[in-house]
Nucleic acid binder design. Structure first.
Lengths: 185, 185
DNA sequence: CTTGCATATGCATATACTTGCATATAGTAT
DNA sequence: ATACTATATGCAAGTATATGCATATGCAAG
């Protein structure tokens, strides 16, 4: 039920449409919680039924109408109650590591190619997180409490990407000892 | 569909029962892929229907019968085909970071308590991974290809836990600047 | 000039995963 | 004595997530 709560948290900032929530998920909370827009629309319907949010339709002539959702008193209470209940441990699904478990029984060049792709992926994300960090959080010590939470999310993103990037290099060295290290970009 | 493939990989080693698969998931692949035993039993039924595995019932007098599954030729082919298809990017669900996004709008001591719990969790896991590493992988350079894959899984586990542990300390310093750092244990 | 993207929502279906229960027994803690 | 854990499997029902399609339009890039 945590998607609903992630939406509640996002609505703390301001009322938003499902579409906006989806975009914001990709750009912010998306580092550690992904949700498709379908999932968000469905969840919003459920949340409205539960009285956690209320919606207002804003007519638009050229585009489809916007349905703006805002937090209700009950939604706020649900959020507080959720914060009080202990978190689940993080859930990770690392398909690549499952494949690596088959190392020795499956085609090694394929795994090397996958590792290279993953390396590039983490490099991209790291660059993206670091640019957001430089732009929005130049001095972490002086942030308002609100921005501190966001900073910490970004910070973990950066640390994790660096770690995984380094691991990719180790893995490539171990899996394809002969190959030239990839330093592209 | 990746749980099925994770099971196929595990069955490469040797035929196993659902129960054994569940235990092995916790101990090995479980670092980066969790599955309950219900999920595994259900998946095994589906895989048997698809012809990826075949089962043999071993009668036991004192305990319930064991149903031992082994890889079939078709399962082996499915595994190879899956290895060839590019991985999904890793899926992460970090409830704690969603809560931190609400920092400034919700009770801070609760978040501090959560961070402390998480710190302890990562410390435990790190200790566990490091003990496995010391016992089973003392010299990573000399491992067989098969063990290299498992080593790399464990290695990423250790690196990730260290990273997250360090991040917990940063987060605690930033969220509860007055508090004494927790050095218990 | 056509392909694709951004805006904006939604239904229907399918798969994945969780939770609670049920069975059966033997051994080990408290 | 009683409760819990380990062994071993499974059904049923519910929740969560993913996938594919449908609608409608304007704008920008190739």
């Amino acid at each position: 039920m945590a998607l609903a709560h992630a939406i509640l948290v996002s609505l703390l900032d301001r009322p938003q449409t499902g579409y906006e929530l989806g975009k914001r998920f990709d750009q912010t909370v998306g580092y550690f919680w992904k949700a498709s827009h379908q999932q968000i629309y469905q969840e919003l319907h459920k949340m409205a039924k539960a009285g956690w949010v209320q919606s207002e339709t804003v007519a638009q002539s050229d585009k489809p109408n916007r349905i703006v959702y805002e937090l209700t008193e009950r939604g706020r209470e649900a959020l507080d109650a959720w914060v009080e209940t202990p978190c689940d441990p993080p859930s990770v699904k690392e398909e690549l590591l499952v494949k690596l478990f088959a190392l020795g029984d499956v085609d090694t060049p394929t795994l090397v190619a996958e590792l290279r792709r993953r390396r590039a992926y983490h490099q991209d994300r790291l660059a993206w997180y670091e640019s957001v960090m430089a732009e929005h959080y130049p001095e972490p010590g002086k942030l308002s409490p609100r921005k501190r939470g966001r900073y910490l999310g970004l910070r973990l993103g950066i640390l994790s990407e660096r770690t995984t990037l380094g691991w990719c290099d180790e893995a490539l060295a171990l899996v394809a000892p002969g190959a030239r290290p990839s330093r592209r970009k």
